[in-house]
């Protein structure tokens, strides 16, 4: 057993780093995510043919297999696929950020309210959540895209409309456990306001669970976004989207395999990165009830 002084000598940051660096899953996931984000941000500066993002046509170079000039080959109108994949990462990441940026605050706040207040507040919020959970996101997105016009904004809207429910569920269950903890009761007896208790006492204790969930979610959102685009209900050409590229390339299989396979691999790697990172963070923070 260590004395407290010794314990203190090992600072927080060091302990976290120590555990993180010895967790290969987390490290690989983090590397993938960081590299993808950097590529996406720097896309205009590092891609060989930045103008190929738009409706460029270069028939002399169409259907070129992967080579030194075109790492991922070219598509049916002669555009560099590597360039378009990198720009495609951008769209996928923006989709994830916007969807989660809308869904998480809503989900977290509703979860906190339902978990802390209980009673009819809980009943109303959690029943709505249950109903929303019963609808598969892809079906919802298809419906929204069918009613409105298929576009990036609409597909994000559709996904965000359902995604908050998972966070509500998660935060609700954590809050219910925390509500009876002594430190929450202590804050109540000290006269702290409800807002203080919800956002200063309980929320900080949810952060690690939210981080894990967010990372895992990002992978799923990206997959669903790609699936929508693949079905023609998401991003519309010529904007380079990974799902759309897979769909277009699919008509040239198996001869020009690179046109769908390589963008497909990019989706896979990106989603995998987020999932590995999420799993790694879960081990690191030791949170259990997050799926």
């Amino acid at each position: 057993m260590r004395t407290d002084a010794e314990q203190h000598a090992l600072s927080n940051a060091w302990q976290n780093w120590f555990r993180f660096s010895r967790n290969p899953t987390a490290v690989i996931g983090a590397v993938i995510v960081v590299v993808c984000v950097l590529l996406a941000i720097l896309a205009p500066y590092i891609t060989p043919y930045p103008d190929h993002v738009g409706a460029v046509v270069d028939f002399r170079n169409r259907h070129q297999p992967p080579s030194a000039a075109h790492w991922f080959g070219t598509d049916n109108v002669g555009r560099d696929i590597f360039t378009r994949v990198i720009f495609g990462l951008r769209i996928s990441l923006i989709l994830a950020v916007v969807v989660l940026g809308v869904a998480i605050p809503i989900g977290v706040i509703l979860g906190l309210l339902a978990g802390y207040f209980g009673g009819w507040v809980e009943t109303v919020i959690m029943r709505i959540t249950d109903i929303a959970l019963a609808i598969p996101p892809l079906v919802m997105a298809l419906a929204v895209a069918a009613v409105l016009s298929p576009s990036l904004v609409n597909s994000m809207l559709a996904i965000a409309l359902l995604w908050w429910t998972w966070h509500t569920r998660l935060i609700y269950s954590i809050t219910r456990q925390l509500r009876t903890q002594e430190f929450v009761e202590a804050a109540e007896t000290l006269g702290a306001s409800r807002r203080h208790i919800l956002f200063r006492e309980i929320l900080p204790n949810c952060v690690s669970a939210i981080a894990v969930k967010t990372s895992l979610d990002a992978g799923f959102v990206i997959l669903i976004g790609a699936a929508l685009s693949f079905l023609g209900l998401g991003i519309q050409p010529p904007t380079p989207d990974l799902g759309t590229m897979v769909a277009q390339g699919a008509s040239f299989l198996p001869d020009y395999w690179w046109q769908s396979l390589l963008p497909g691999s990019a989706i896979l790697i990106l989603a995998l990165g987020f999932n590995l990172l999420g799993d790694g963070l879960r081990d690191l923070f030791d949170v259990e009830d997050v799926r």
């Binding site: 057993m1 260590r2 090992l10 060091w14 120590f18 555990r19």
Partner: peptide, 12 residues
Amino acid sequence: SFTTYGRRSQVL
């Protein structure tokens, strides 16, 4: 002894 976070300390 116990080794935690790469540091060894003797407990008995």
